[in-house]
Design a protein around this nucleic acid. Structure first.
Length: 587
RNA sequence: GCAUCCGUAGCUCAGUUGGAUAGAGUGCUGGUUUCCGGAACCAGAGGCCGGAGGUUCGAAUCCUCCCGGAUGCGCCA
C-alpha cells in the first residue's frame, strides 16, 4: 500500500520521465493553496533550471506534462499556474477508492517497513537519588512515543529505562548516610528525598565532603558489603517510586536495567581496550582518544576510568552497549535524553565504534530534546525556587479534569471509579500532548496553565472529538439495529464513501496519515503526529458542524458519512496511541 | 575563545527537498443552539519572519557579516 501522494507522484513522475526528465521532478504534495487545488507539483520549474545553460520555459515543460496527465482518469482538474506550478485535483471516486483501500488494510496506508528487526530505545533515565520531577517528563514521554512509533513501523522494540544507580549521586547519598551514622538502616522514599538534596548541597559547598562522596562511590563499586546492602535497599525503594510515576503517566518499559547492571562487564572491557591500545592512560585516568583530523571543534576524549579508579557514566554507557549487543543484537540503539548531553553521545558513539563494541552497520542514534524552561527562559523552577514533582503535576491535572467533568454534569451517572479513570485519562492527555506537540529538539517554556489547559490545541480537545465520534457511532448502532445498512457497512469495513462538498476536506485529510507517519519515524519527531491528530480532530469538528449525519435522509450518504466518522475515529485512536494517549468512552 | 541551537502575530509556537496571499493555538472583536455532546463551530482585526548584504524566475528557508539569547567544551549525568 502506497500513500496517496506517492501514487500521484508515480503518475506525474512517469509523465516527467517520458519527457526525458528524472522521476523526482514529479513529486506531488498536498497543496499549500487549498483554494486553488488539492495537490501540486513544482517539478517543471526545477526542470527548467536543471537544464543548465539552455534555459527552457517552465510553463512549456508544465504544458507537456499536463497534456499527458489530462488523459488519465484520476484527475478532475489539471492546470498550470504562475511560473509553472502544476495544480491538480483528483476525482471523488479516486479519493473514495483510496480511502476504502487504506481502511481495508487496517494500517491506513502505513507500510510495515521493518520486519521484526530489534531496536533498543533508551529513555526515562531517572536517578535513584532524586525524586521524579517535571524534568523527567520529556525524557519519558518522548521516548515512549518513539518506541510506539517504531513498533508500529514493524521493529521489535525494547524500551530500557536505564536508571542512574551507579554514579556520584549515589555516592553522595551513601556518604551522607555515613555522616549521619545511619548506614544500614532502612531508608524510605521520603528519607531519600531529604537526604540527597542535603548531601548534594554539602558536597557543593565543601570539597572534603565531595571527596567523601567520591570515596563512597568507589567503595560501592569495589563491592563493599555494607555499602552494597544499603545501596540495594534504597535502590529498591526508589524504583518502586519510579514505577508508580511511570504507571501514572502510562509510560512503558520492557527493561528496568540500570548503570550498575553492567558492572561485571567493565573490568574485562577495560583490559581488552588497553591491550588493543584503544584505551590509554592520561593524567591518571584511562581514556579513549577520539579526535579526528577533520574535526572543526575540540572533541575531548572519552573517560573510561576516572583518576581515582572509579567508573562514571561514560564507562557504564560503553558497557551497556556491549550488554545490549549481547542480549538483543539490535540494528539500532536510540538515546532520548536532554540535548545538553549531545557532546557526550558524540564521544560515546565514536569510542564505541573505535572500540568495535558493535559493527558499523548498527546505528547509534541520539534523539536529544530541548530544555524545559521557566517563563524567564531559564531551566524551570517553581515559584519557591524548587522543583515540581511529577506526581504533583499529575494530581493538579486530575483535579482540574474532575472539576470540569462535574461542571459538564457528567459526574452524576458515573460511578466513582469511572469518574476518576476518565479524569486521569484527560489529565494525562493534556500533559503529554502539551509536551509532545513541541518539536523534540527545541527548548520550550514550561507553562503550568498551558500544560493542563483543555481548550484549543490540547489533548482534551482531541479526546473530546474522539468521544463525540464514539457517541455518534454508538447511537448509529442503536438506531440501525432494524434494517439500515450502516452497521453492516462499518462492521464489514465494506464501505463505499460518497464525497459531497462537506465531506471532501475531511476525506482528503484522512489520506495524509502515511506521509506524516513516515516523517515522524524518519526524524524521530512525535510532534508531526500531534499536528496531524489536531488537524484531523479539527477537520472532523468542522465536518460535524457543517452537516447532520444521523438524520441524513439519503441512506447511502448517511452510511458513507458514518463510515467517514468511523475511519476518522480509528485514525485518531491509532495516532493518539502512538503518542501514548488513551481515549475514554465518555468525558 | 571554539562549537551547536535559536530569534516568525500581544503571548506560546508551527512552517518537510527554496515556491503562489507566511500558518496554528491563545488573547481580543463580532456571530452561531427547533436536530447527532458548546471542552465546539464560523468570521474579523493583528506580521519589515532580529538587522544588513548576496545567490535566483522566486528566500522565513541557502551563503556572508552584524545584533540579541540559550547550551556545551577532561574525570557530574
Amino acid at each position: 500500500m502506497t500513500s496517496l501522494v506517492e501514487k500521484l507522484s508515480n503518475i506525474v513522475g512517469e509523465a516527467f520521465t517520458s519527457q526525458g526528465f528524472s522521476v523526482e521532478l514529479g513529486t506531488v504534495r498536498v497543496s499549500d493553496r487549498p483554494d486553488l487545488c488539492q495537490f501540486q507539483c513544482n517539478g517543471a520549474m526545477a526542470a527548467a533550471k536543471k537544464n543548465n545553460g539552455a534555459k527552457k520555459n517552465p510553463r512549456e515543460i508544465a504544458q507537456n506534462i499536463i497534456d499527458i496527465l489530462c488523459k488519465r482518469d484520476e484527475f478532475s482538474k489539471v492546470e498550470i499556474a504562475g511560473p509553472g506550478f502544476i495544480n491538480l485535483d483528483i476525482t471523488d471516486e479516486y479519493l473514495s477508492a483510496y480511502l476504502v483501500g487504506s481502511t481495508l488494510d487496517k494500517r491506513f496506508g502505513v507500510n510495515m517497513l521493518f520486519d521484526g528487526q530489534t531496536f533498543v530505545l533508551d529513555y526515562g533515565g531517572p536517578n535513584i537519588a532524586k525524586p521524579m520531577h517535571v524534568g523527567h517528563l520529556r525524557a519519558s514521554i518522548i521516548g515512549d512515543s518513539l518506541r510506539r512509533i517504531c513498533a508500529f513501523a514493524g521493529y521489535n522494540t525494547i524500551g530500557d529505562v536505564h536508571i542512574g544507580d551507579w554514579g556520584t549521586p549515589v555516592g553522595m547519598v551513601l556518604s551522607e548516610l555515613e555522616e549521619r551514622g545511619i548506614i544500614g538502616q532502612f531508608i524510605t522514599a521520603e528519607d531519600l528525598e531529604e537526604i540527597y538534596p542535603a548531601s548534594a548541597k554539602a558536597c557543593k559547598e565543601d570539597k572534603t565532603r565531595m571527596e567523601k562522596a567520591r570515596l563512597a562511590t568507589k567503595k560501592l563499586q569495589n563491592g563493599d558489603a555494607v555499602y552494597r546492602k544499603a545501596w540495594e535497599q534504597f535502590v529498591n525503594v526508589s524504583i518502586e517510586g519510579m514505577k508508580k510515576n511511570f504507571d501514572l503517566l502510562g509510560v512503558h518499559f520492557d527493561e528496568w536495567k540500570g548503570e550498575a547492571c553492567v558492572h561485571d562487564l567493565i573490568a574485562p572491557m577495560i583490559k581488552t581496550l588497553k591491550d588493543k591500545k584503544i584505551a590509554e592512560e592520561s593524567n591518571d585516568a584511562i581514556i579513549i582518544p577520539i579526535k579526528e583530523n577533520s574535526d572543526k571543534k575540540e572533541i575531548p576524549p572519552l573517560i573510561l576510568l576516572k583518576s581515582d579508579g572509579a567508573v562514571m557514566y561514560s564507562t557504564t554507557d560503553m558497557g551497556t552497549i556491549i550488554d545490549r549487543m549481547q542480549t538483543h543484537n539490535p540494528v539500532k540503539i536510540l538515546y532520548c535524553t536532554d540535548q545538553r548531553q549531545s557532546l557526550h553521545f558524540e564521544q560515546l558513539f565514536r569510542a564505541a565504534y573505535k572500540a568495535k563494541l558493535l559493527p558499523e552497520t548498527v546505528e547509534l542514534i541520539f534523539a536529544g530534546f530541548g530544555t524545559m524552561n521557566g517563563m524567564d527562559g531559564k531551566p524551570f523552577k517553581t515559584r519557591a525556587g524548587g522543583i515540581m514533582k511529577l506526581e504533583d503535576l499529575i494530581s493538579m491535572g486530575i483535579e482540574k479534569a474532575q472539576f470540569r467533568l462535574d461542571e459538564a454534569n457528567l459526574a452524576k451517572d458515573l460511578d466513582k471509579q469511572e469518574h476518576k479513570s476518565i479524569a486521569h485519562k484527560i489529565a494525562i492527555s493534556a500533559i503529554k500532548f502539551a509536551d509532545l506537540q513541541n518539536p523534540r529538539q527545541s527548548n520550550y517554556i514550561f507553562d503550568l496553565d498551558r500544560l493542563i489547559s483543555f481548550e484549543g490545541k490540547t489533548g482534551p480537545y482531541l479526546l473530546y472529538q474522539a468521544v463525540r465520534i464514539k457517541s455518534l457511532l454508538r447511537k448509529a448502532q442503536v438506531q440501525t439495529q432494524t434494517q439500515d445498512q450502516t452497521q453492516k457497512y462499518i462492521a464489514d469495513n465494506k464501505i463505499d464513501i460518497l464525497i459531497k462538498d462537506e465531506d471532501r476536506t475531511l476525506a482528503l485529510l484522512l489520506s495524509e496519515l502515511p506521509d506524516h507517519f513516515k516523517i515522524a519515524l524518519k526524524n524521530y519527531t512525535p510532534h508531526v503526529l500531534c499536528d496531524y491528530a489536531f488537524r484531523l480532530a479539527q477537520g472532523f469538528s468542522s465536518f460535524y458542524a457543517s452537516c447532520h449525519i444521523l438524520s441524513e435522509k439519503n441512506k447511502d450518504l448517511r452510511a458513507s458519512r458514518l463510515a467517514l466518522c468511523d475511519l476518522t475515529y480509528k485514525q485518531l485512536e491509532l495516532v493518539l496511541d502512538l503518542l501514548g494517549i488513551e481515549i475514554p468512552d465518555r468525558m
